[in-house]
Design a protein around this nucleic acid. Structure first.
Length: 853
RNA sequence: GCCGCCGUAGCUCAGUGGUAGAGCGCAUCCUUGGUAAGGCUGAGGUCGGCAGUUCAAUCCUGCCCGGCGGCACCA
């Protein structure tokens, strides 16, 4: 047998696909469309195993759908703006643009080596002026619609690097790169009104039935919609303000009110502090205490009684004290609350400390009104309202509605929906991003750059290599003239958050050559993305921003769809064992030799033999040095074996552990497959195929088809492994004509079934058995449902629930007939000796149970 | 604390209200002219624990234990 040689066959087939333009996406009115997309990569310069797995999955879907007759769009691009390029510029004195495009060239070559069925003609990078110029165009459209605005906001400022940092870039209060203590600064920042869409973004999640439940829940939590009542308390006596506005989700418990509280940085608290040193001291303490999240979580409830009183909205004679409390957040709701300790744990903890009253107003089912009391645990369950005058006897929902109606009638407030979501701050003080296309004019203020002057491109001679914003520093770039008055003006030097770049790229892929940002005609055909694939780490950020931008552009008439991704799949990571020397140094897998002694394994350094500690299995990362370079694997085992392994060893949504043994197993499979095809013998004309092998083939087609449809790639591959064993036990050599005929059908199907996973091998196999054209153009094999069922069923026979024998019966045999067969069976009869048969339960085609005593 | 996912062979995982499976690993043997390879055979499981429903539970229900992830003073 000739050994399979991937180094020779793999490039050959990639060339053949390229010259046939096999993956060109075409709008074909005669076919249903299918848009499959994997989250595009950041061009770091090197492909890692996580990319291999992510893109292999998308490729399986793309090839499968193509074979099933869909017109498929499967594009690729680069999320190419961002900090790493500027950091490389600073560390190595290179040009970010050159660095980025060099990386893209390297990674494109590696991705192409993977044999992905991508329409490369649509490729673009977000740092192409042809892309970000279009982004500037729709940015201005949203600006015109009022969805983009400038606001003062507090940001993380790195005083050494002279830039704003995202929250993720602040580690323990210090800039992740400079190590400098991050300052809070108030800056004029560009923001997008994502909060205008908070309701839609929540409601529309329900219709995303092909998204993981987990991601939908995470987005729902992040947006954090709550419905309640916003209303004003009126002060009793002198006070520094007219009234105090609070927000509550429990207006039904208003008669259980114990006190009113405000956040330490609430204007009222500050007003009180102006004349009350003790209050000022308390506020100061609160600010200091809230240094880290962990401290906030565990912080004890503390408060300060301002001495002010407010009137209960339903009883002017009932006065409630006003406290400043450390557990109230200024940036949620109105920064002020009314407290009902009987039915809110935080309020209860607070009043237990300060001796304020606790009055229950919700009676749990089955409790006695006279006896029910709240101890150290607030009651938040269902029940009937009592102790509440006109609300008595109502359930919680009815009481909420009634309380809101009364407050509204009094003119003291209104029903309100409050969100946790904040507007999206998109300004970055970085040069390597999409310039914000506006100018600042001393007479006309903020003026958008006219569309016919777009794109606002980076200057060619941009000087990186120093901290801070190189656009700001550039000697001439920012000086321009005002489009309105033609007087001198300056350009905005902030650039857009790179999440803006990735919030619409999927729409640009529909027609990346279009003059307008999005070609309606092409987008209407291709969108939404039918299957989107990527990591769970984008569950909130990218996936939320993309949904928002899609809705905003749809309202502007630039898109028809209101959701970008009809189906979402979040794949697991690639992990590997970690290795450490005695001195704690991490060691790469390729420098390790593993010795198995029975069931235990020892690791040592290659060469020196120094023992190495085998550590936990963790996500492949540079810092733990537990990475395996894809190109080295491709070199030894070929691309197909690598693709096969990352898909075969775990369910797609779970992590997969990379092991040498595993990839060798995949490599052996590739060779065994080739062996079967290489030994192929055509069947003599007119031979009837062996029925058993034939049934197995049709069962396999069904199983693999269903596995791919359900994203159970590992399961489908397991069936292919099993089937290969079956082929091995029905070899072509010296085979009867019936077996050869059945093998012919089996191999023809098998070559097409493995094509999504190991496309190069599939082509080689297909050619070996004389398949027509290439597998990429061949239709997916069909199965005959009748052939996927066995003609004769083996039914286990149980006596009182324990297996006592088995019988064979034709498929679909009636229970009465099966009963006769069972009772006639001598082995079973012997087991029934001395017993009286009470009942026989026959489950068609499955099992028989005899109840006897 | 709340929500979600997971627990099946040494490892990674299929699977089903009715006979417990695959790949890898391990062991035995064969091959030594596919040879830094190939093949045969085999061992290995109280299906996390306890209870319930059922003729029958790894599967359904409840409780508990363990692991992972997300959210968390959000009024």
């Amino acid at each position: 047998m000739a050994r399979y040689n991937p180094k020779e066959t793999e490039p050959k087939w990639r060339d053949a696909w390229a010259s046939a333009e096999a993956f060109k996406a075409v709008r074909d009115p005669g076919k249903p469309k299918y848009y499959v997309l994997e989250m595009f990569p950041y061009p770091s310069g090197r492909l890692h195993m996580g990319h291999v797995r992510n893109y292999a999955m998308g490729d399986v879907i793309a090839r499968f759908k193509r074979a099933r007759g869909f017109s498929v769009l499967h594009p690729m691009g680069w999320d190419a703006f961002g900090l790493p390029a500027e950091n490389a510029a600073m560390e190595r004195g290179v040009d970010p643009k050159g660095w980025t495009y060099d990386n893209i060239d390297r990674m494109r070559a590696e991705l192409k080596e993977l044999g992905l069925s991508i329409d490369w003609s649509r490729e673009f990078a977000t740092c192409d002026v042809g892309y970000y110029g279009k982004q500037q165009a729709w940015f201005l459209d949203l600006f015109e619609r009022g969805l983009v605005y400038r606001k003062e906001s507090v940001v993380n400022w790195d005083p050494v690097d002279q830039t704003v940092l995202a929250n993720e870039q602040v580690v323990d209060g210090r800039g992740w790169r400079s190590g400098a203590v991050v300052e809070k600064r108030k800056l004029n920042q560009w923001a997008m009104r994502i909060t205008d869409y908070a309701d839609q973004l929540t409601d529309d999640l329900k219709a995303l039935d092909r998204w993981p439940e987990k991601v939908r829940v995470m987005q729902e939590n992040w947006i954090g919609r709550s419905k309640g009542l916003r209303f004003r308390f009126h002060f009793a006596g002198d006070a520094p303000a007219e009234s105090l506005e609070v927000y509550t989700t429990r207006p039904d418990t208003l008669f259980g009110a114990s006190f009113v509280g405000v956040a330490a940085d609430h204007p009222l608290a500050e007003a009180v502090a102006a004349n009350d040193p003790k209050a000022a001291a308390f506020i100061e303490e609160c600010r200091k205490g809230a240094a880290t999240e962990a401290e906030i979580e565990t912080a004890e409830k503390r408060g300060y009684d301002t001495g002010l009183k407010v009137k209960h909205p339903f009883d002017p004679n009932w006065e409630l004290p006003v406290w400043i409390a450390n557990f109230i957040l200024m940036d949620y709701g109105t920064g002020a609350i009314f407290a009902c300790p009987a039915h809110d744990q935080r309020d209860l903890d607070f009043v237990r400390k300060y001796g304020l009253p606790v009055k229950p107003v919700v009676l749990p089912p089955g409790e006695d009104a006279a006896a029910f009391a709240v101890g150290d645990e607030a009651y938040t369950g269902p029940g009937v309202i009592y102790n509440s005058r006109f609300l008595d006897g109502l359930d919680i929902e009815a009481a909420k509605a009634e309380a809101i109606a009364r407050i509204e009638a009094q003119g003291d407030g209104e029903g309100a929906t409050v969100f946790r979501l904040r507007d999206w701050g998109v300004s970055r003080q970085r040069a390597w991003g999409c310039p914000i296309p506006v100018v600042h004019c001393p007479t006309d203020g903020v003026v958008p750059v006219p569309k016919d002057q777009l794109p606002v491109a980076h200057p060619a001679d941009i000087e990186f290599g120093k901290a801070g914003n190189a656009l700001e520093r550039h000697p001439t770039w920012k000086h321009t003239t005002c489009p309105v008055c033609s007087g001198p003006a300056t350009r905005e030097t902030d650039t857009l958050d790179t999440f803006v770049d990735s919030s619409w790229y999927f729409a640009r892929f529909a027609n990346p050559w279009a003059d307008e940002p999005i070609s309606r005609e092409d987008a209407d055909y291709w969108l939404p993305v039918d299957q989107y694939i990527g990591g769970i780490e984008h569950a909130v950020l990218h996936l939320l921003y993309a949904r928002f931008v899609t809705k905003a552009l749809a309202d502007d008439g630039q898109l028809a769809v209101r959701e970008p991704f009809a189906g979402l799949f979040t794949q697991g990571m690639v992990t590997h064992e970690t290795y450490r020397r005695q001195n704690g140094e991490w060691v790469e897998p390729k420098d390790i030799e593993i010795v198995a002694e029975g069931k235990t394994r020892r690791a040592m350094l290659v060469g020196s033999g120094e023992p190495v500690v085998i550590g936990d299995v963790e996500k492949m990362s540079k810092s733990k040095r537990n990475t395996v370079a894809p190109e080295e694997i491709f070199d030894v085992y070929g691309v197909d074996a690598a693709r096969l392994f990352v898909l075969s060893d775990s369910p797609a949504e779970r992590d997969v552990q990379w092991t040498t043994g595993g990839v060798q197993g995949a490599w052996r499979f590739v060779n065994r497959v080739w062996d079967e095809f290489d030994s192929h013998v055509p069947a003599p004309a007119g031979a009837e195929p062996d029925p058993e092998l034939r049934r197995a083939t049709h069962k396999l087609i069904r199983q693999v088809t269903e596995s791919i449809d359900g994203f159970r790639f590992n399961s489908g591959i397991a069936r292919l492994y099993e089937f290969l064993n079956l082929l091995k036990s029905n070899p072509a050599r010296d085979a009867a004509p019936a077996v050869l005929a059945a093998r012919q059908e089996a191999l023809s199907a098998f070559a097409r079934l493995i094509a999504p996973f190991t496309p190069h091998l599939a082509e080689e196999c297909w050619a070996r058995i004389g398949g027509e054209g290439m597998v990429v153009a061949a239709p997916w094999p069909d199965f005959d449902p009748a052939l996927t069922e066995d003609a004769v069923k083996v039914l286990p026979v149980q006596v009182n629930g324990k297996r006592r024998g088995e019988i064979s019966a034709p498929a679909g045999a009636e229970p009465a007939d099966v009963e006769k067969l069972v009772l006639a069976d001598p082995e079973i009869a012997s087991k029934l000796e001395g017993l009286t048969v009470r009942k026989i339960i026959v489950v068609k085609d499955r099992i028989v149970n005899i109840v006897a005593a």
